[in-house]
Design a protein around this nucleic acid. Sequence first.
DNA 1: AGTAAAATATCCCGGTCGGGAATTTTGCTA
DNA 2: TAGCAAAATTCCCGACCGGGATATTTTACT
Lengths: 77, 77
Amino acid sequence: MTTPSDLASAIKAARRALKLRQAELAAAAGVGVRFLVELEAGKPTAQVGKMLAVLGALGLDCQLVPRSGKAPERRSP
Amino acid sequence: MTTPSDLASAIKAARRALKLRQAELAAAAGVGVRFLVELEAGKPTAQVGKMLAVLGALGLDCQLVPRSGKAPERRSP
DNA sequence: AGTAAAATATCCCGGTCGGGAATTTTGCTA
DNA sequence: TAGCAAAATTCCCGACCGGGATATTTTACT
């Protein structure tokens, strides 16, 4: 879960696993359908709070773990 | 990691553990200092992409895990 | 193949982000 | 304890993004 696209795929997969439609999940999470569409499309400018609300509605929780190759990514390596 | 505030504390703690200043982390992540300040303050409207960039600069990765009490949170239970 | 439902893109306004300077807070030392 | 230096937070303004409702395209099922 490193990029917005990764997050997007994971969310979409989780929603499908629960057999929820976008409108249903959006309503359950208290966000608009458009937001969910863009979130699942990997838009990097989605708001964190609403993203977490969606995860909550999916029954998911977010954990921070050290990276595999654990060297912090610098801006211009 | 359920609310923006949780995320905020975790990020702040991680930054301190690495003995990085806000300006340094912001530069490494390619975001503005003000963004980092607000992110660490738990602002729910921060953008996901930049938040992930910060995590990357901290050497952290985000994992989605089923919730403890795993029933999906509905909007108005 | 046809139709109905679902997913995606568009319109406009309010809100957020970025950069630099000033102000407050933190923490360290004499 | 007092005092200073570094760090963190706040402020202002221009440009771009998020949100609801509608229109259009894509998907799925009979």
